[in-house]
């Protein structure tokens, strides 16, 4: 299983680097979206996929991982909303620097919030993880619909097909995060012997969704890079 986690980490590393590089080299509208995907690498994969890294037993590191994961989906959803507004109004504002600074500021504020409160125990971490996965699940569905609308507006542009890929990405993320949420909400980990099939489906749904999401995120940004050459 550790091997699988390492493979996942490699794919998410590739996806994260590609998306971050993409955020630098392209129009401002892509910054929020690309930075959001890059944050998956920081917030989710490093503590999740590499449990053997030192300091990961620290509850603050784990809590920040979930918080950054939550910020990740919020930021990319905001990016897609901006893109949708652009396709409807052709208006766009802001700068890349503001996006980077805002993301760093929100992460810093979250860290301060954690530090000034009691040390998160297992139950607190579970709640934070549920909040994160809930955001991912419902915003993935909303984003699929939003991206569908964006696609309808720009399907005859060079970038059009890239949004079909994003729909596929969010379908996989929905599978990944939905399965994780299901396991957490019903504490299936503790009662897996009573519900072995549900647990197995959820477990493999989470892992395969995670794996294919990592591949499709990296692939989508590489494809977008090709379309935007």
């Amino acid at each position: 299983m550790e091997m699988f986690q390492v493979v996942l980490a490699v794919f998410w590393l590739i996806a994260g680097v590609v998306s971050f590089y993409f955020s630098i080299g392209n129009a401002r509208v892509w910054t929020s979206i690309a930075v959001g995907f890059f944050l998956i690498l920081l917030g989710e994969i490093i503590p999740g996929a590499l449990p053997f890294l030192p300091g990961l037993s620290n509850p603050y590191v784990l809590a920040m991982g979930h918080i950054i994961g939550t910020l990740s989906i919020l930021i990319m959803s905001h990016g897609f909303q901006e893109y949708y507004v652009f396709t409807r109004t052709l208006e766009f504002e802001g700068s890349k620097l503001h996006v980077y600074l805002a993301v760093i500021g929100v992460i810093g504020a979250s860290l301060v919030f954690l530090m000034i409160n009691p040390t998160p125990d297992k139950e607190v971490l579970r709640v934070i993880r549920i909040v994160e996965n809930t955001n991912w699940v419902f915003l993935s569905l909303i984003n699929i619909d939003l991206i569908r609308k964006i696609y309808l507006n720009i399907k005859d542009t060079p970038i059009g097909n890239g949004f079909v890929c994003f729909m596929a990405v969010f379908a996989r993320i929905f599978l990944w995060k939905g399965s994780q949420l299901y396991i957490d909400v019903f504490s299936l980990e503790q009662i897996k012997d009573a519900y072995p099939i549900r647990y197995e489906i959820s477990y493999w749904g989470k892992n395969l969704g995670n794996f294919f999401a990592s591949i499709s995120v990296g692939g989508t940004f590489l494809y977008l890079g090709k379309l935007l050459r």
Partner: peptide, 12 residues
């Protein structure tokens, strides 16, 4: 050109 960058690459 600024607006077009959101839907197409520099060469196009």
């Amino acid at each position: 050109s600024k607006g077009a960058k959101l839907v197409a690459g520099p060469s196009k």
